[in-house]
């Protein structure tokens, strides 16, 4: 019997199930099950001990639609994505174009630009909070020397949002730069040589050769950064806690507040459904476009 069992599992096509089993099991329990459960949770009123009014039907969603703070956070999140992502991509593309060749200077620059990514958002927040401090920050001091007095970077409704955008770009433009550099290096050199002979300027080469050739990489970065930026949390948590006056309160931060500070798990789930729908729409739109392009 033991022998039979052994020989059964020693067959490659059977052993494969043992190989994938742990990962599949873990993903089912800790990824797919919670995904389904998040829909279910959003119909309940409960705290973390599962106590509360229990099943409340669509009450959470009815409340959500009337919740001004939710709509505000949705707006902040979308605005963040629409400002941060294009900025980061333009910066990444421009720098990658300048850094494509593997010279010593370029290698050094790439290594430096990537540095902030290995730092935690908390460390980045501590760094910039000091740099931009309203009283003793060195940036504030420089600005006051140039005539701008009392700029309050971290606590003003108009500016603080853009400070978060800046910090986010600062922290992660190295990612898009690195991806674009490796894409640009793969563009065949002959294309540039013949353009050079036709007297094409570098700028025109960039727009007419480089950009079309790396289109797929651009969409890849666009979609991953877009989805990533809709989930921004760490920087907000450690820099502003959503303030001032909710001007930097993103959807995920708001979900966190409702679910884990006020212990309203059901309502938190309902709020996170908005994020889910947002990301789903983008993903579907992206793949639909990809599919159509492949078809054509």
């Amino acid at each position: 019997m033991n022998r039979g069992l052994r020989s059964y599992w020693s067959k490659p096509s059977h052993a494969a199930y043992l190989f994938v089993a742990p990962v599949i099991l873990l993903l089912l329990v800790f990824r797919l099950l919670p995904t389904l459960a998040s829909f279910v949770c959003s119909f309940f009123d409960m705290n973390m001990f599962l106590e509360g009014r229990g099943f409340v039907g669509l009450d959470n969603f009815a409340e959500a639609f009337r919740d001004k703070r939710l709509w505000n956070s949705l707006l902040v999140t979308v605005k963040f994505a629409l400002v941060e992502v294009p900025l980061q991509m333009v910066v990444g593309l421009a720098l990658a174009a300048l850094l494509t060749k593997n010279t010593v200077r370029n290698r050094l620059c790439r290594a430096v630009y990537f540095m902030p990514i290995v730092c935690s958002a908390t460390a980045v927040a501590i760094m910039w909070r000091m740099f931009l401090h309203s009283n003793v920050g060195i940036m504030t001091y420089w600005l006051s020397q140039m005539g701008w007095q009392n700029v309050n970077f971290l606590n003003s409704v108009d500016i603080t949002f853009y400070v978060i955008v800046f910090m986010s770009v600062w922290r992660s433009f190295g990612i898009s730069t690195v991806i674009f550099v490796s894409a640009m290096q793969a563009v065949p050199g002959e294309l540039y040589e013949s353009a050079e002979m036709d007297g094409c300027s570098k700028l025109r080469q960039f727009f007419n050769i480089t950009l079309p050739m790396i289109r797929e990489n651009i969409s890849f970065v666009l979609i991953t950064r877009l989805i990533g930026s809709l989930q921004v949390f760490d920087l907000v948590f450690s820099t502003t806690s959503g303030g001032p006056n909710y001007s930097t309160e993103t959807l995920v931060y708001y979900t966190y507040k409702r679910a884990f500070s006020e212990h309203r798990m059901g309502y938190g789930s309902a709020v996170s459904m908005f994020l889910f729908v947002l990301i789903l729409l983008i993903t579907v739109a992206f793949y639909a476009k990809l599919y159509r392009e492949k078809d054509a």
Binding site: Y17, F30, A37, C41, M265, L275, I279
Partner: peptide
């Protein structure tokens, strides 16, 4: 092996699920 394609799609599908969407039920679990 049988079902390989299906299982692999399953794995890929979990890559699309944003962590922040499942954080509440995952925490409860």
């Amino acid at each position: 092996f049988k079902g390989k394609h299906f299982l692999f799609i399953l794995v890929l599908a979990t890559m699309m699920i944003p962590f922040q969407v499942i954080m509440v039920p995952l925490f409860l679990e």
